[in-house]
Every structure is written in C-alpha cells, then in structure tokens.
Design a binder for these strands. Structure first.
Lengths: 217, 217
DNA sequence: AATGTTTTTTAGATTTGTCTAAACTTTTAG
DNA sequence: CTAAAAGTTTAGACAAATCTAAAAAACATT
C-alpha cells in the first residue's frame, strides 16, 4: 500500500497526463502538489523504484499500468464519495471537493464496492466527471468545450473541467448547472465573450469561463 | 489541528482513563498504540506542550478539558461512521471497526453533523456504545457486566466492551446480539461458566466472554 | 532501609516528506 | 550555434514519529 502522499502524486500525474501522451514534468507536478521541484524529484524516484511510474532524469514521468490502475482507483473513490456527499448528505456541488480529497484515501475495497451499490452505481459525479468502474473502465466521453461553439449552436451542459468553489458558485448563480440546454446567441468581437440562452434567460460568459464548461451537442 | 497519530494517542488516553481517575501510564499507552514506551514519552511531551494533556515525568498523563473534548469528538465520529457502515452499507457489526478507525480522522465538522442527521441522530453504535452529541455529551449508561448476574437474574443485552471481530462473531453465532433477553439458568462451580437462556435456547458462556457483555436488568 | 524489579526517560539513530541553495541539463532565442 | 533562460537534480538540513540501548526513577519485598 501507498501513503496518502504517494497516492496524491499518482493522482496528479494521472490528471496531468490524461489529455496528452507526453511525459509529465517535474514543475507541473510541483505546482499541483504545492511543493517545490526538489521534493518532486525525490518522490518520483521513490515511485519509480516501486514501478508505479517510469522516470528518466530530466525527461519527466509516465505512469506504468500499475500506476495508472492505482490512480484511477483513487479517482473512482473520490468521485463516488462526491456523489454520496451531494446525493445523501445534501452538500452543494461546490462544497464536496475538499472532503472527498480526504475520503478518497480510505482504504477498503469492500467499502467502495458497497458504497457504489448504495449509490446505485452512478456513472458520473456531481460535476459530470465519469466514475470508473471496479475494473477502472469508463467512457472517456468526449464533450465539446463551450468556447468552441459557434453562434446558433446549442447543446446540453454535461460537466465542468474546473472544480474550484468560486467557479462552481458562479455557474450556479448563472443557472448553468448539469443538464441545462444552452444556445449561443452571440459572440462579442471585442474579447470573445459569449452570449447564451439558458432556459429562455440571456446570460453572458467570459471565454475563460466557457472554456471549462463541457457540452454535448 | 492534530495529526492522525496525535488523535490516536488522545483517543487511547481517553479510553484508558474513562473508568478511573488515575493518570494513564506510559506502558499502557504503548501497548494500545503498538509502539514502544520511548515513543510514547516523546509523543506525550508534544501533547503536553499543546495543552491537550497534563504530564508529570514518571507520573503518567491526564487529559485536559481541551484534550478530552478532542478525544470525545473522535469517538463521536468513529461511532457515527460505524452506524453508517452497518445501517446503510450492510456491514456486519464485526466488520466495521477498522474502517471506522480510518474514517474517524476525516476532518469536517459539517460532514459529521450532516451524517448524524442522515442517520437520524442515533444514540448508540452497533456495539451498543453511546454516541456523544455535538457538545460531547452522552449518557454514561451504567450497565451491568453479564458475569455479575446471579442465577435466575435476567436482562437485556445492551452492548459489549470488546470489539474484536473474533469476539463479535462468537456472540453472533451464539445468538447474543443487541436487544436480546437473557436469563441466567446456572453457574458452574468448576470454572464459573455461565448457562443462559436466550430466546428459549440454552447456551454456555465462559466467564471471560461474559465479562464483556453489558446487560440492563 | 537496602536491594532488585519494573517502569519511564534520555540519547542517538532511522524513515518519510519536505525545504533551500547550488549545480547541472535542456530549451529557447538571438 | 552559442549564450541566456528555464527546468531539473543533487547535497545537505529539518520536523515528525518511530526505534534500540542505556540510564534514571519509582515500586515492591524481604
């Protein structure tokens, strides 16, 4: 078994490598972990010794199959706990991240299988992210980012790619929650701000915000 | 906030001092923690610095009010999680201790209050132990140990004072679960073994086992 | 009260995860 | 293609929690 810290490194490496095939760089990990690059170097040596990542000096790291499996399992636990917190304990979607960061390290396969069943095997967490199954499989649903839509395009809000409380509260206030149908009515020439119709209400979004909203056409 | 380790020390000191007023000894803590006395000395110095315990060299330790409040809060979390595991996730009463040992360190007051509400404010955990309320108050229900009963005495099984899986499975097999009515029908001269009637079934208990069963007359 | 046993503490070492400062690679730009 | 900038690693140190071995205090017993 790994320590909490090792698990957090694996999770971060997983998230940083999920888009691209490129190796993950020391500084990127350090920034996400809130540590210094020197500390990251120490830790990745340790993870490489344990065959959880492949590491070449100065060249960044990649997860091994074992490492990826471990990381996905942590993600699975995180997302299931988030569902529990929202569905069963009535937390809001912007309140659950930090608690789930702690709960994801609880160590009992049996617990997670039973929690999964208790929650009726949810497919997505409260932010729309897919929940891996016991074997680590999940649809890597390829949604479009809202900032890629053109005028008159429409679609359903399926998820977000930013989980900060500030961002989620902002969406909540705008009425932009999961499942909502949106239609792009205008895109400003000046800074690319997007004008949307959500349930016949007109709202305005910065491109920065739009970038983190995932849409199914 | 304290580390997991500090929390575990406080919890153990609390349990070791709940019966008596006497200071808790270094060796007793070491045994429960599964560490050596020298390590305990180091840690109790640290806890004393933080004003969580009162420590006099060679004289053992006592909890301060703050220390006791902290310890009781951990006990509260532990027992609420045990209720959750048994009531909601269908774990057996002998399977929940270790998982609750991990969950008790999750750090969110809001989470615990909502969990308490979700579970409909239970008064006791699956082993009959009382669950402290938000303020740390709980009835220190004074039950009798089964080995104190005399022939023809009867009462209800209200709890256990031993939480090992082996012990609990044994009780389960005997049908000695919470709420059962028992009546002492005989006590062997030889070794003090106790013969009981439980739901019109005759069973035999060693004194050692009986000592850990709590009865309300 | 003296002596032996038990308990506790001290001293010094180890492991884990972190840091700073300095050295070393790799990348980027002129 | 070379020099500066950016990124990474090494070296040495530190705090937390533990350990072993040895010293010190408390206790128990004749």
């Amino acid at each position: 078994m790994q320590s909490f810290t090792e698990e957090n490194y694996l999770k971060i490496i997983y998230h940083l490598s999920s888009d691209t095939d490129a190796p993950v760089q020391t500084n990127a990990i350090a920034e996400r972990m809130g540590t210094k690059a020197a500390s990251v170097t120490d830790m990745i040596k340790k993870l490489a010794d344990k065959q959880l990542i492949i590491y070449q000096k100065y060249q960044g790291v990649k997860l091994t199959d074992t490492g990826r499996r471990t990381a996905i399992n942590i993600v699975r636990k995180h997302r299931l706990w988030e569902v529990f917190l929202v569905e069963k304990l009535s937390f809001k979607w912007d309140e659950v991240h930090d608690i789930a960061e702690e709960l994801e390290h609880i160590n009992s396969a049996e617990l997670i299988e039973r929690l999964d069943e208790f929650l009726a095997f949810p497919k997505n967490d409260p932010h729309g992210d897919p929940i891996p199954d016991k074997e680590g499989k999940f649809d890597s649903a390829s949604f479009i980012k809202l900032n890629k839509l053109k005028i008159n395009d429409q679609g359903l809000v399926m998820g977000v790619s930013e989980h900060s409380s500030a961002f989620l509260k902002h969406l909540e206030k705008l009425g932009l929650t999961l499942g909502k149908l949106v239609k792009v009515t205008d895109i400003t020439d000046f800074d690319g701000s997007i004008e949307l119709l959500v349930e016949s209400k007109k709202i305005n979004l910065s491109r920065e915000v739009a970038k983190h909203i995932l849409i199914k056409a």
